[in-house]
């Protein structure tokens, strides 16, 4: 197992190197534009060239890439081209905000999806159609539309929850809860729509399998069959869907954090891309790749725990 984890982590590092090289090559054509943006309306060709030179952006891309990697492995992701603040601490700070949305959203999504999926699969009929209806509705509404609609309803019209802004957990727990409620709902609805359908489908498959019939003939209660046996077997694919949901929520955060003016990873990435803040874009890429790698790795390990056949040695 240790070897497997190390192998996966090594693959993650290789993936990060390749992705960062691609990012480097893509943004290398915009160094002049970034310098011009940094200098503002008063930028002249001379001052732009001087800034590009001062930042070392006029050197061969591969040299800059290797140098950046060298510093990155020592934990130095550089400084933002615009704010001069260290990228690493800024990204970590923003990541904490996004995770404070995504982790509760994912837990709620998992709980609701399992309840809904199992309920639909084990009862069938009207309940099943109701669950499918919920899943369909959740799929239909785009996250952006949902976010705007909920803000207008709960934030503007009813005034129950803040329309924008973020309160840090450590500053005011209740305020934090209020500030993340609508964004979490926006993340949960499409998540449940997707994951509950997967759980339902998998549960129906499991409940139709021979071992379930055998358990029934032995007089095992339906409750026990569903929750102790079928659900455990259905859990493995559900876990994979959950890991994909986690990553998808990071993508959705890009939109949601802008709509709710939340200072998270998504809005940070969005603004860095608009400005062409090269060190920040690279820092975000590193964290993004690391996150995806770790999530997949954890999923594989948990899958092995749930399903011995999936274990790796």
């Amino acid at each position: 197992m240790t070897l497997y984890i190390l192998r996966r982590l090594a693959a993650g590092v290789m993936l990060a190197l390749v992705i960062l090289l691609i990012v480097f090559l893509l943004i290398s054509s915009s160094f002049d534009d970034t310098a011009r943006t940094m200098l503002g309306q008063g930028a002249t060709p001379e001052s732009t060239a001087a800034l590009v030179e001062a930042r070392g952006w006029d050197r061969p891309v591969i040299v800059q890439y290797v140098e950046w990697i060298w510093h990155a492995v020592q934990g130095d992701l550089g400084q933002s081209a615009f704010t001069s603040l260290p990228v690493r601490s800024a990204v970590v700070d923003r990541l904490a905000v996004t995770l404070s949305l995504i982790v509760p959203a994912l837990l709620i999504t998992a709980i609701l999806s399992v309840l809904l999926g199992v309920w639909a699969a084990s009862h069938g009929g009207v309940i099943d159609r109701f669950a499918q209806g919920i899943s369909l509705v959740g799929h239909i509404f785009p996250a952006l539309l949902l976010a705007i609609g909920l803000v207008v309803l709960f934030g503007v019209e009813l005034g129950w929850l803040p329309a924008t802004g973020y309160v840090r957990f450590g500053d005011d727990t209740l305020g934090w809860l209020r500030s993340i409620t609508i964004p979490v709902i926006v993340l949960v609805i499409p998540g449940v729509a997707n994951m509950s359908a997967q759980v339902r489908g998998r549960m129906i498959d499991e409940l139709n399998r021979d071992y379930v019939r055998t358990l029934r003939t032995r007089g095992i209660s339906s409750r026990s069959i569903v929750y102790k046996h079928a659900l455990r077997n259905a859990g493995s694919p559900a876990l994979t869907v959950m890991s994909l949901e986690f990553i998808q929520m990071f993508g959705a955060a890009l939109i949601i954090e802008n709509v709710f003016a939340l200072p998270g990873f998504g809005s940070y990435a969005f603004n860095a891309s608009l400005q062409g803040d090269i060190p920040v874009i690279l820092g975000i890429s590193v964290f993004g790749v690391a996150l995806v790698t770790v999530v997949h790795l954890v999923t594989d390990i948990l899958n092995g725990w749930l399903n011995p056949k999936a274990r790796v040695h």
Binding site: I148, V151, V152, G155, V156, G159, P162, A163, T164, G165, N258, V259, F260, A261, S267, F270, N271
Partner: peptide
């Protein structure tokens, strides 16, 4: 001073009394 990049979010904050 609250920087809010998205103009719709800024508008929502305005009419929500924030």
């Amino acid at each position: 001073v609250r920087p809010i990049t998205d103009q719709t979010a800024r508008f929502n904050a305005m009419i929500a009394g924030e």
